[in-house]
Structure formats: C-alpha cells, structure tokens
C-alpha cells in the first residue's frame, strides 16, 4: 500500500473523532435551550423514573454549569441512554432501533434505483447534449427537484389509492401484519422483504413490495434529479478533456470512448453525492414516511416533534448526524479504492 494512501486513510479515520464530537456538541447546545426540568427527560431510562424529576436533576447536575453537564450527558449518550420518549413510551434508543429497519428497507430500494436511474439519465443527457432528449430529461429533472415531496406523495396517494384503491399506505396489508405478529413469521432483519424471502413466504414478499411502490416512486422522482444533474455536468466536463481526444485519436469508436473512458471518470464525482443521498435516505425520510404511514425513524421523529418530545427529536438528530459521518467516511474510502491517484499516491 502506497505510503500516501496510508497517510490519507489514517488522516481520514482520525478526522471522524472531532466530527463526532462536534455533532454531539451541537446537539448538546440545543439541549441547553431547555429548562432543567425538560432536560431531565434526556436522562431517564424507564417510565418509573419520571416521578422523581428533582432527583434526576440533582443526580446529573442539570442546574450546574454547561460544561459540566456536557460530560454527564456525553457519558449517558456513550452508554446508549438517549432518554425517554413520552410520545411512545419507550426509551429513545429502543424506539430508534425498532423503527430503523423500516427506514432501511425504504432506503434499500429507493437509493439504488435513484442512483442508477440518475446515472443513466445523466449519461444520455450529456451524450445527446442540446437534443430533444437532453431538454426533456433536464425539464423532468427540474420538475422532480422542485416538487414538494409531501405534495407529490399526497397526489400519488390520492390518484392511486384514492382513485383506484391501489397501493394503500403502510408497510403491509392487515392480513400480512397479523401474520408477521405471530410467531410463525420469524423476524431476522426487520426488513419485511428480506425476512419474507428468508421465511420463504412469497405472499408477504409481494405485499411488502406492493406497499413500497409509492414511497419509493416518490423518493426516486424527487431525488433522481440531483444525481442526474451531477452526472450530466460531470460527463460534460470530462468530454472536453484531452484524454478523450487522445482516445478518439487512437481510433476508438465513440461508444467505447464514452463507456470506457468518459463515464468511468465522470462517475467519480457522482460517488460523493450518491453517498450523501443514501445517508439522507437512511436518516429517515421524515415527510415520505409520514405520508405513507411507513413506520420508520422519520415517521417517529415527525410525530415526536409535534408533541414536543424533546429526547426523541434530539436522539433522532444525533443518529442522523452519525449516519452522515459514517457515510462520508465510506465515500472517502471508496474514493481511495476507485481512483488510482489516491490509492497509489
């Protein structure tokens, strides 16, 4: 492994620490906007403790100076205590853990679809620049990007579900829900499509997929624009470069030049964005989950917010921050893998 790669990786991994601290610090700063009584709920692990708020305040020094509180809170977070969510009567950590699979499932389908479709559309848009196809795809992308996700979701629901009874909201139909609750259906991952395959239950698989259609469509329509634009401009940037002329000068046909050289170089820029997009999806699509009643962490956070459930919302924000940090790390590592200039230094 080249020495500059070692340096790059080490530096990158070390950078995670201050960033994580920074995220925690920011959320902590938000907690300081609350009164000690409100903050007490961040330290509670189960419902019995709600009675003894004053004890909690004393125990964790919630009326002491901020910097002291930071360390107490930090130690709680590190132990996994994110507080008690009164909106659903569970510890915040449990709530997030139980709801994360739903969000993950949504992201599992929406992210690859969005990324692949975006890359494809961006590519043909760039190759056929200024033709009808280009204008058409660009128009679609502006429309998709400008669509409010909640409005698109509602319109789709109104049309398909309201109009034709298709694609009802929720993750599963009532019969499937009932089945899943029983012991017959073993939950391995929490992702219904994956579990259905593992259980060899194709009826549930189809039902879960059926319920994924509209939310995935909503997410894709809106986000594909982003990937498409970056891919398009990335490709256009590469097409003007000398190595492309040189490749043509070698006698390579246009298709090979585009597929083998231009696209590969253009994809490098798209990697970062794809990583961020996936992270965004894993952070819970608050709006989409709410509209389609997909009980993921976004749905949970939205309801918690309306009820001013502080620990829930803050815990959710914290989780989101971490997801992004990890995603950025993975993206940077990917870069080191695909770009020989970084890999071999």
């Amino acid at each position: 492994m080249g020495s500059s790669l070692k340096i790059y990786l080490t530096r990158r991994l070390l950078l995670v620490i201050p960033t994580v601290l920074g995220v925690i610090l920011l959320i902590f700063a938000v907690t300081q906007l609350f009164t000690p009584v409100q903050r007490a709920s961040l330290y509670i692990r189960d419902i019995k403790q709600v009675k003894s708020i004053d004890e909690i305040i004393a125990k964790y020094g919630l009326d002491k100076p901020a910097y002291m509180q930071f360390f107490t809170w930090l130690s709680q977070v590190v132990q996994g205590n994110l507080g008690w969510s009164q909106s659903i009567h569970m510890s915040v950590l449990d709530a997030l853990m139980t709801r994360f699979p739903a969000t993950a499932e949504l992201a599992l389908y929406a992210a690859p679809l969005t990324i692949l479709l975006g890359i494809y559309l961006g590519k043909i848009s760039a190759v056929k620049k200024d033709t009808a196809i280009d204008h058409f795809t660009r128009a679609l992308s502006v429309i998709g990007w400008s669509l409010p996700s909640f409005w698109l979701g509602i319109v789709l629901l109104a049309f398909f579900y309201g109009g034709f009874g298709l694609f009802s909201p929720g993750r599963l139909s009532p019969w499937a829900e009932a089945l899943v609750r029983t012991g017959e259906f073993k939950i391995y991952t929490g992702l219904y499509t994956v579990d259905a395959i593992l259980n060899l239950n194709f009826a549930v698989l189809l039902d879960a997929l059926y319920h994924l259609v509209l939310p995935v469509a909503t997410l894709t329509i809106i986000n594909v624009a982003l990937i498409m634009r970056v891919m398009r401009s990335s490709m256009l940037e590469q097409i003007g470069k000398t190595y492309v002329v040189a490749a043509r000068a070698r006698g390579l046909d246009e298709k090979t030049v585009i597929d083998k050289h231009v696209t590969k170089n253009a994809l490098i820029s798209v990697v970062t964005l794809s990583g961020l997009l996936t992270a965004g999806m894993l952070s819970g699509m608050v709006i989409t989950e709410t509209i389609f009643e997909f009980k993921g962490i976004g749905y949970f956070a939205a309801r918690a917010a309306t009820q001013l459930d502080i620990p829930a919302v803050l815990g959710f924000a914290l989780l989101t921050g971490f997801i992004f940090i990890i995603a950025n790390l993975i993206v940077d590592l990917l870069y080191a893998y695909i770009d020989p200039r970084i890999r071999l230094g």
Binding site: K241, T242, Y243, V245, A246, A247, H261
Partner: peptide, 12 residues
C-alpha cells in the same frame, strides 16, 4: 499531444 499528463486517462 502537448500535455502528456492530460492525454492519458488517469483511471487506466
């Protein structure tokens, strides 16, 4: 070409 670095695809 004038710039040999630019004339070669960096990924191959």
């Amino acid at each position: 070409f004038q710039e040999p670095n630019a004339a070669l695809d960096p990924l191959y």
